[in-house]
Every structure is written in C-alpha cells, then in structure tokens.
Amino acid sequence: MATIRYAEALNLALREEMARDDTVFVFGEDVATYGGVFKVTQGLRDAYGDRVRDTPISEQTLTAMAVTAAMTGTRPVLEIMYADFLPLSLDALVNQASIYHYIWNEQVTMPFVLRTQGGGGVGTGAQHAKSLDAMVAHIPGLKVVAPVTPADARALLKAAIRDPHPVIFLEHKLLYNLRGEVDEADEAPAEIGRARVARAGRDVTILATSRMVLEAQKAAEELAGEGVSAEVIDLRSLRPLDLDAITASVARTNHAVVVNEGWRFCGYTAELAATIMDHAFDDLDAPVERVAARDMPIPYAETLEREVIPDSADIAAAARRALA
C-alpha cells in the first residue's frame, strides 16, 4: 500500500494502461510538455513520446478527433481542461460518440475517454467553476464516472480506458491533492456502475457525487453528534446508476438526501430524487431532500461562492429536514 495523491493515482493509471496497450494515447491542451495544468499527465511525454500530444485550444475539434480516432482502432484519452468548456464538445458527444454504435449497428466501437475537471470552491469564477454533470449524464450512450478517492480514480480511469464505449471522466479541482491509500500491486480496473458505501448508517441515506461525498461525510460526522446515523453513498458512476445500492440503502433508512454540486433545476439531484421515487416510493418516510448549487452563475468572490455551492452544513440541514 502507498499513500498517493489523486492526481498521482490518475497518472499511475495512465502509465499502466499506456504500457499495457499501445493503442492508448493522450492528447489535449498543455498535457504533454507542461504535464497538464493539474499535473495529471506529468512525465508521460518523456515516457511515451508522441503518444502524448499537445493541441491547440479547440475543444470542439479535439472531441471530434477523439471520436474519429476511437472509431479507427485506437483508445484516445482526451483532456478537456475545464468542464465549463464541455458545451464545446457537446456536438461530438451527442451527435457522434453516443450514437455511432447504434446507427451503424455496432460496426464501430467508441473506446474513448474524455477527462475533465469541474466544480468550484476556490474562487475561479463563473467560467471555471461549474459542474455540468447533468448535461453529460443526460445523454444515452455515454457513461459518466466521478471518482472521489485516489484508489477509485486509478481503478475507474483504467476501466474507462478499457471500456468499448465513450466514458466521461469527471474530476474535481479540489480533489487533485487529496491523499489516499492505493495498492500499487493491484492493477485491476474497477467495475463501472458500482456505488460505494463511504460511511454506513441507519437513519438517512445521503447519496453524493464527486467532492460532495467529502462534504456528506463531514455532514454525517456532524449528524452523529446529534445521534443521527447517516449513511453516505459515493455513487462513483453517475451513469449507469447503481440502482441496487440506492434502493437497498433507502429500504433500510427510509429517508434520502441527494447531493450534487451542479445546479438544482433539471439537475442531477432531480434525476436521483425521481429514481428513488420510481423504485423505492413505498420505502420513503419523507420527501427526498435535494442539495444542489443555487440556480445562478458561480460567483468569483469566495464569500459569495460559498453561498452558492453546497457544503456539509447544507447537507446536514437537509438530513434534519428529512428526519423532521
């Protein structure tokens, strides 16, 4: 076991997969010479040469290139520096990547990974702090994962690279320095679509994604001081959803709080709340509580940003409302 940072775990996964399969290649803005603005691709250029390439700033073109490369037999790993720029990638995702296996009767596969990072909390402003999870999770044919621990970051990135379908890999700028234990000898990929019980509890289920899992764990700690036993589930995969894990937990706790850093209206929490009502309605003892960002641009001033992006206090308050 080694304790490494989240960014290092991603770097490790890329190295392992590039060594294992020489069709894997990495490209994006500043990923080669500079090693990535968040240092995820550091040293890869030295190790793998032209399989790690810098590109101009053109997310739309880059995503279409990834689609074409994947169709023609390679496994591209594209980095889009900020999730805020995913709208530029959308046409290639919605009209190409997600549908080609379908409209061409599975004559093509689409094994590519789009890595990006989103979220706020450090005053990066309205163009560099968004969580557009719901926008990509909405699209049939895409898988969307969002690991929160270094071990999951490594195992899920390996799974994403090996997956025959396009996978959107959502990172968070506040997670890169998070340390966690990773078993370097265990090179097995994760299974996409499996949630993780981050903290077991009896009274209320908190479903969270990405960095919000950490906030949910803090909230659970706070609630424990009040005698409330909260279960925190790290979804890990936003699409496909681990329905069994969700329904099993809600069946035990009968109360659910759903948390996502994206906007509330038509947001990912809306999908989670509806899913719980579709599949566990009769287990609910209270309405599902949603915790999400306020429906407005993410403010640059950090004091205001804190009011817009949910945190552990919001989650604990939602749990108290559910249990009222």
Binding site: F281, D282, D283, L284, D285
Partner: peptide, 8 residues
C-alpha cells in the same frame, strides 16, 4: 397526508 412508508 402521510408518508408512503407510513401508509404501507
């Protein structure tokens, strides 16, 4: 007005 669980 009752929760689904209470009804069940």
């Amino acid at each position: 007005v009752a929760s689904p669980l209470a009804r069940r």
